[in-house]
Amino acid sequence: MILTAKKLAEEIRRGSRVDDQGIAIVPMPDIEKAERDGEASINLRLGRWFVSMRQSNETHIETVKGVGQFNENKFSKKHFVPFGENFVIHPSRFVLASTLEWIRIPNRYAAYVVGKSTLGRRGIIIETAAGVHPGFSGCLTLEIANVGEVPIRLYPGMMICQLFFHALEGELQSSNTIHGAQRKPRLGQLREDPVLSKLMKRRR
């Protein structure tokens, strides 16, 4: 069940009163406007830190934990773009960014990140791992790609994506998300996958 603007506003106000059962979004978005417009989502803004990919002497990015030795930080370069300046994303390029807002989702809810259609129509796709788990706390890392044919300027502080909240059915005791409590975008840690480990073992 998706939360309505009214319910969302109620939960965000609750979060701003330091109630850990409420939804916290810092800095607080314009929830009055969301209520007035009857939206079912909250718009989030683009933060000032970016991570771009760069060429290095590493041959590839590994996607499975524990396979081979490589340093994925060699592929990435951090950027800080002040308010008022911009980051140009060229066609076919990809950059990690984060939301300006820090979000904390109580265990009763989950959320989905969706791009803004106005940006999508211009070629910017927010290819985020769309689900945000209950208990998440931190700035969301956004995977932004320019699938258009012309370079596009991104401005820190601009509205970049929207967040739809869903109420969970059933009770969740605790949550252990691994990418939280960060203000900067990052590649994130790969999880151990015991099933994959077994599948990958070679027969003698």
């Binding site: 850990d20 904390r104 706390s137």
Partner: peptide, 14 residues
């Protein structure tokens, strides 16, 4: 003290 209450539940101060 008010900010500390927010930090304790894992959020920056509003």
């Amino acid at each position: 003290s008010a900010h500390l209450r927010e930090f304790r539940i894992g959020i920056p101060t509003h």
